[in-house]
Nucleic acid binder design. Structure first.
Length: 511
RNA sequence: GCCGCGUUGGUCAAGGGGUUAAGACGCAUCCCUUUCACGGAUGAAUCACGGGUUCGAUUCCCGUACGCGGUACCA
């Protein structure tokens, strides 16, 4: 019988969630949904010193905004809880001690200073960072070098100590990665990683293996930065639970800086003026804040779509995918091996496309919320719907709706008079005065009728209608932008249109 | 330094022994539109380098270069 599909995302609450992190969530989520499996959120908070207040809540909020809510999490609970590693502390020690008993790990009593001294002592130009490994461990204070009675004594006296894995000397560890295929590591080059820290907390290495086992994780997907430590995890699986029970691994490529090289970092956001976190994040310690895609005006569907395409491609020309479509089409095997540079222009393009194709009812909440923030709270909902339809094509971010449509709700207070003046004359002023009057005769007020009336009068006056359209636009909008001008007047209504024409005519006369 | 992973236009990428080497973003020109966009058309621009293997290599193999990641009682 096939193993149940259970995948987990395991962030540490040490700050906001950047793009790479959210993409890992997305891929995990897609895989789980695609196979009818469970998506689990586990919080890796074993390093209490780095815990940032609010970071965990931020993670929940991000997942919620992205629509990627887990089936099991610290909030929801579930059959394999707790889902916060700090609350599972008591689980880990027994496994570490089991390894010691079986000769696969050992106690180490070296102080931080002693470790530094060792690294200094063995440092050479060829080896700038000496490891705690089979070459150096014999020179350290640990269960392998100390007499058994001495180790026992230190333990009994409660001397601070850690437990380190004892890496075998000459073995080749094979990782079968769903994306990269067979990756080999020589244990000769691996170091004796700490498994259990002096404070009794496990390191990531022990915790990930124990928790994946206890939570029956079937597939373990994470960022490429974990690839080098994969052999340690494989060894732990072999010693503790058996490699046959080990989840299948996949290591995702990194998301790189838009310019230059390197992993995308939070600094790049401020430097380049682009969002790199899903949502705004304010570091409570430093006060530093990073803008998010949500606040910049991205749609949930577009954000997910953009993220999914950074590192995965179905092999067709299709680029636009809803979450549902992604669930159908996604496959781990088609995730790239190489990292991708983040391209903000393309990200905006995705958003633009989704703004154009999303049903109005789904778009409206975004627009309403933004309008409210800008002090345009009490807008006529029906007008808003038609206006959204009218301007959506020219908006790529939600705030664009405000610049593109605010004039439907507020009369302009300033006009781009320079655009009008050069060709302005008394005859045109006359035209508009008469046109205001003529408008009263338009029985069925709509764009088409209004345009007909406008052109009729222009012909009578012997003026090219085209020369009058720009001034009319400036009167209604204030600047050279927006949908076709008669469409605007049609939505504005007779009275408001007349008011705006009169107002600018007045301003024109004064200047 | 060592280990690991990568390398198709500026960017995201398809392809994978014989192709005019898809497509998208961005850029440029033109058309449409007497606004700004959308849209349409066209264009510039790519297989990191060197050796093999082969009738033939962008594709397979080996090197080199370059980039990235790791090398913590961080995750």
């Amino acid at each position: 019988m096939e193993k149940k599909i259970r995948v987990r995302f395991a962030p540490s609450p040490t700050g906001g969630l950047h793009l790479g992190g959210v993409r890992t969530v997305l891929y995990n989520y897609l895989f789980a949904r695609q196979h009818g499996g469970q998506f689990i959120l586990r919080i890796e908070d074993t390093d209490q010193s780095r815990y940032v207040p609010g970071a965990e809540e931020y993670i929940y909020e991000t997942l919620k905004w992205c629509g990627l809510e887990p089936d099991e999490s610290p909030l929801k609970g579930g059959p394999y809880g707790p889902y916060r590693q700090s609350e599972r502390k008591q689980n880990y020690r027994q496994y570490a001690e089991q390894l010691v008993r079986e000769g696969r790990a050992y106690y180490a009593f070296d102080t931080p200073d002693e470790l530094d001294a060792m690294r200094m002592k063995f440092r050479t130009p060829e080896n700038p960072s000496p490891q705690y490994d089979h070459r150096t461990r014999s020179a350290m204070r640990n269960g392998l070098t100390l007499p058994a009675a001495e180790t026992e004594r230190l333990l009994n006296e409660g001397v601070p100590h850690v437990i380190r894995i004892r890496i075998p000397e000459k073995e080749t560890v094979h990782l079968r990665d769903m994306i990269r295929g067979d990756v080999r590591f020589e244990t000769e080059l691996l170091d004796d990683k700490v498994l259990l820290k002096a404070d009794g907390m496990p390191t990531y290495h022990l915790a990930v293996v124990v928790d994946d086992y206890l939570m029956q994780i079937s597939h373990a997907f994470r960022g490429e930065e974990w690839l080098p430590s994969a052999p340690v995890h494989i060894l732990l699986w072999r010693y503790l639970f058996g490699e046959e029970k080990m989840p299948q691994w996949a290591h995702f490529p990194l998301i790189l800086k838009p310019d230059g090289n390197g992993k995308l970092s939070k600094r790049d956001g401020a430097r380049l003026g682009i969002p790199i976190y899903a949502m705004d994040w304010k570091d409570p310690a430093t006060g530093e804040s990073i803008t998010g895609f949500r606040e910049t005006g991205f749609l949930q569907v577009a954000f997910n779509n953009m993220l999914a395409m950074m590192g995965w491609n179905e092999g067709t020309a299709q680029e636009l995918y809803s979450l549902e479509e992604l669930i159908k089409s996604f496959s781990i095997e088609r995730v790239h091996k190489a990292g991708a540079k983040f391209n903000y222009e393309k990200a905006k393009w995705f958003n633009h496309e989704w703004i154009r194709r999303l049903p109005e009812k789904e778009l409206l909440p975004y627009v309403k919320k933004y309008f409210a923030e800008k002090g345009l709270a009490a807008v006529d909902e029906r007008l808003l719907i038609t206006v959204v339809g009218l301007v959506r094509e020219r908006c790529s971010l939600i705030p664009d709706f405000y610049t593109q449509a605010r004039f439907f709700f507020e009369a302009p207070t300033r006009w781009d008079l320079d655009a009008v003046r050069p060709k302005w004359n008394e005859q045109k002023a006359e035209f508009f005065k008469e046109f205001m009057d003529r408008m009263n005769r338009v029985t069925d007020w709509n764009a088409g009728n209004l345009e007909a009336s406008f052109k009729e009068l222009a012909t009578e006056k012997n003026i090219k209608p085209g020369e009058l359209q720009l001034p009319l636009r400036i009167m209604l909008v204030g600047e050279k932008m927006g949908p076709p001008v008669f469409e605007i007047a049609g939505r504005l209504g007779r009275e408001e249109t007349q008011k705006r024409i009169a107002k600018m005519l007045d301003a024109m006369g004064k200047s």
